[in-house]
Every structure is written in structure tokens, then in C-alpha cells.
Design a protein around this nucleic acid. Structure first.
Lengths: 222, 222
DNA sequence: CATGATTTTACGGAAATCCATAATCTGTAA
DNA sequence: TTACAGATTATGGATTTCCGTAAAATCATG
């Protein structure tokens, strides 16, 4: 079982709950960080002191407040920690249920578990800790495990997202084309942008551009 | 101090934390509901049994899952409870920080306190309970209290919101007009809808309809 | 090179929207 | 009733987006 744990989480309520869960495992050596920056510093310090953490439990989204931060999201924190200390086990613990983001965490940051915050997340958290402490198995909350299998997220690339973002910011199609031409982004013809949009509308079953932006906003794609 | 409390909240973590807070106040008689429907039924039952709750602490957004529900949001629950039991005190306890929605809770549902979930929300929750238990004062988490003061002289009415919602759902302007005519909603002419939209775009400084829907979505108006 | 497949660009008419102006309706007060 | 103001509707042209077809460019392969 884990000996030394760090929790990156801004909400008191979740901190309390995780703390309780760790105590149930008889893990007494844990620390909280309400900002990603703090978590990172602590992890680095622990390595220097030759007393590294062996588990990081991290939220993904952190509220912005008055304080200036370098690392603003859990995704970044996890990425940096994985580079700094490749052998640490990492549990992402978040309300985030967007396939793309979760997939990327497993593939790019090699997290060991993803626990979805929800009606029964503490049970999942316990299962996750159990699973990854004794083996190199991965754990994913069952509600989204199936969704992750879906291979359907095919071919929405950077350009698509760029177009959607510009649209939602009030840029007209013609203006977008201008911007693309000025920034040497290709393809940048009227037809190309129109074709992209029509594909996106088809894919997301959107009736028109307004609908498309509305849908993709809801899905957290933009 | 409150004697009997009900908490409508789907996340275990928040339930645990609220429970702890109530215990700090020596309130032992409390119940949790993870679905709005359950909360409503319990409140109604308590009235019938002549042992009504005197405080409702309710989240605003609830995760959807397999279960079919009648009341899907805290806003609705609060509205219904206020009608059913006008004298109950209500604390909205949410991550929601959109002015309009919060304002509407105070104005339309006469909630007694709004506690914003965040880094220090438990302190706020305690303050809220203290404040509203001893007087008819309202409590609002300080981070948003100032934002609430802003009185922007909107005159965005139901019709405007209806139009925006239809647009974001992919309905074309012509179709909206059709719908309005069929439902006897007036005004329902092409010009009227166009004029509304142009006013809204002006007000929200939107370049076009896509932008307008994007902005109003971000603001939580639709 | 030559060839064919794929991607990108060009073009044009249809449809939807944007926007300004004018006509009509509705309620109120003299 | 009449006159007036404000709200609503009608009209039409400009602009933008939509959508299909065709031409041109690019790329892989033999």
C-alpha cells in the first residue's frame, strides 16, 4: 500500500473526503495542495529530500482566483509530475467526462487511474487505490470505461477546432479565411472552410452553424 | 438554530462535508437526497407527518444517470419547495457563479443564502447557517456578492430567452416564427424577431448570431 | 514521367440573414 | 371620434452562408 500521498485539489469538500478515504487505508502520511503550483513544489522538494511521494491524486480543473499561477490545470500538473518522477502513481480525480481529455491523460501522461467524481465516487476511489497499489493495472470509473472504448471520435483536428473557436468568438467565415491566409495556415480557401463546417455539421448532427457552435460548446470541445 | 435539515446533493464528498458542518452545529436530525425527486418527496412527507424540515441545503446541478427524474435541477427543486412550504429556509450551495441565475434564485425563489463552492466554501456555509438561523437576513458568498450588485439595466424578457434557446437548439429564424405563430406567442413576425435579435446583438456586443449564442451560453442565460 | 486518387480551390445559384424604411395596428387621451 | 405615440408587421435589397459541381493542385506509385 502507498506510504506517502499528495492530493492536488482546490475544494475543501473533496479534500476532506479523500483524507477520510486515505485514513480508511491507514495511510497517515498525506498532504494537500490547493494550487497546482504548490503540489509541484512539494513533489520536487520531496524528491530532493529523498522522501518522494508514491501517489498523486489530482483534480483536473482548478478555480481561478486572485493568485497568479504557473500551472493552471491538473492536466499540466500531471504531465510535469510524470516527467519529473516517472515512477509515481497518478490518479486523476475529476468531474470531467469528455472522452478526448481522459484518453489523452492515459496516453500522454500515463496516469494509472481515472476516478469520475459523482454519486459514488468514493467507492471508485477506494477501488482505484486498491487496484493500482498492488499491480500495474489501470483503473477507470465504470461509468466512462465503456465510453472510452468508442473509437468514434474520428478526425476532428486542430483546424476544425480553430474554426469553431473563431466562429464562437464572432468571426465571420470570410474573416477566418483572411486570418488563415495571413498566418499561413492551410488550407485557407473559402471552399475548404465551408467543407470543414459542413463535415462538422454532419458529424455533430447540427442544423446550422449556430447549432454547431452550441453543441461543441456543450461538449467542451471549444 | 435549525432542528431538521435536508440536503439535496448528488456528490458524496459534499454530502460528507455538509454533514460534518451540521454536526459542528450540533444538528443531528438531517437527511441526504442524491436526487431532486427524492428531496421533494421527503419534504412533502415531512409536512404530512407534521414534522417539517426547517432548512434545505440544495445543490443546483445534478448529474444525469440511468434514472429518470421529474425534477432535474436544483433551481426547479427550490422553486417547488418554496411553493410547497413558504416558511422553509433555503441555502443554495453550488459552483454556479453566473449573476443572472443567482439573482433569479433570490428574486423568484426567495432563497435565504447562496454559498459558492470553492476553496473556502465550508467557512461560508457555516456563516450562512449562522446568519439565516438567527434572523431573516440573507447571506451571499463574498466572492460573488459584489458581482450581484451590478445592476445592469437589461430588459431581456422571456421572449428574448425563448428566441435564444431555439437558436441554440438549431432552429432557424423562420422556423421560430412558425413555432410562435402556432403557439400564439406574440409578437411573431419576421421583423419582430429580427428586431429582438438585433437589440440583443447590440446589447451583448455580438458580431453575429453565432457569437450572440456563444456569449449568452457562457453567461448562463441560456 | 505518366496515371489515377485525393485534396484543395474556384465558381455560381439558392437560401438564410441582415438591415433600413415604410405601412399598419393598438391603446390612450383630448 | 380624432389625433398621436409606440409597438408590430410588411417589404425589399444587401450581405452572408449554404451547397453542389467542376477545375486545379498535390501526392503516391509504378
Amino acid at each position: 500500500m502507498f506510504k506517502k500521498v499528495i492530493i492536488a485539489e482546490d475544494f475543501e469538500e473533496f479534500n476532506l473526503a479523500v483524507e477520510q478515504t486515505l485514513k480508511d487505508f491507514n495511510i497517515a502520511d498525506f498532504q494537500h495542495a490547493k494550487y497546482c503550483d504548490d503540489a509541484f513544489l512539494k513533489i520536487r522538494k520531496a524528491i530532493q529530500d529523498n522522501e518522494p511521494y508514491d501517489l498523486l491524486i489530482s483534480d483536473l480543473s482548478f478555480k481561478k482566483d486572485h493568485r497568479e499561477v504557473k500551472i493552471s490545470s491538473g492536466d499540466e500538473l500531471i504531465q510535469k509530475v510524470r516527467e519529473l518522477q516517472p515512477n509515481i502513481k497518478i490518479i486523476a480525480y475529476s468531474i470531467e467526462d469528455k472522452n478526448l481529455r481522459i484518453k489523452s491523460l492515459f496516453e500522454n501522461s500515463e496516469i494509472d487511474a481515472f476516478v469520475l467524481k459523482g454519486r459514488n465516487s468514493l467507492i471508485d476511489l477506494k477501488k482505484a487505490i486498491n487496484t493500482i497499489s498492488t499491480s500495474d493495472q489501470k483503473f477507470i470509473s465504470p461509468e466512462i470505461a465503456s465510453a472510452l472504448q468508442e473509437k468514434s471520435n474520428f478526425e476532428i483536428d486542430d483546424l476544425d477546432i480553430k474554426i469553431l473557436k473563431y466562429l464562437s468568438a464572432g468571426t465571420s467565415q470570410d474573416e477566418i479565411i483572411e486570418i488563415f491566409k495571413n498566418s499561413d495556415i492551410k488550407p485557407n480557401s473559402k471552399s475548404a472552410v465551408e467543407k470543414r463546417l459542413s463535415k462538422l455539421k454532419d458529424f455533430f448532427k447540427a442544423n446550422n452553424t449556430v447549432h454547431l457552435v452550441s453543441i461543441t460548446k456543450d461538449m467542451g470541445i471549444i
